[in-house]
Design a protein around this nucleic acid. Sequence first.
DNA 1: CATTTGATGTTCT
DNA 2: GAACATCAAATGC
Length: 228
Amino acid sequence: MTPAGGAAPILARRTRPSAVLTRSFYDRPTERVARELLGTTLECTTADGVTRGRIVETEAYTGPDDPACHAAAGRTARNVHLFGPPGIAYVYFIYGMYWCVNAVTRERGHGSAVLIRAVSPVDGLDLMHERRPRAKRERDLTNGPGKLCLAMGIVGAMNGCSLRSGPVIVRAGAPVPDDDVEISPRIGITRAVEQPLRFYVRDDPFVSPTPRHFRRTGYAAAHTETIG
DNA sequence: CATTTGATGTTCT
DNA sequence: GAACATCAAATGC
């Protein structure tokens, strides 16, 4: 017996794993996967419950030839799962305090991934507020890579786990049309600072603060060859 | 809203 | 020792 207003509404939101994780994942450019992850649902299950959010901001870290990618330093104890098979989580600890979560792309051994930088909360809002008691505004819950991991309970123990089977799962969502996607340089890095590898949903309040000097580029405008 | 600064600790040089 | 894919608080608009 499920009481009205119980777990049923949460379960009803579950969908299949995102097709982004099941299509030709091995040789697709990481920046393309980053763009396609916009609109999908990030889910995390812990002993405290389930949280879900719509991915609204990502960054591509393309591999050993990308100076800003952790793979550029070669394989280390910290980044082993970055070199794992596509479709697993690469979770790392940064600035002594925060976790960040990536979706690994490309073939095993390549070392590329998509950083999830922001989500728009969908389920488990009460739990997110409990975990982030200092968030004053709603958007402060999840408008950054460290914040969303705190709100959703994503931690280093989840490093290397499959994004199809959990505890962190990427599920299908309504695709974001090209006209609603913008591109900018990546945030908070000191190498390869000009590369247009950050993707986000235009005007979404949960996108992390964007420096004014990051000139925004429409995804559709940047791919005019597809328009003709 | 923009800018500045301190916190915190692991990783790598 | 320095760097680090960050955040929150404090300050000045």
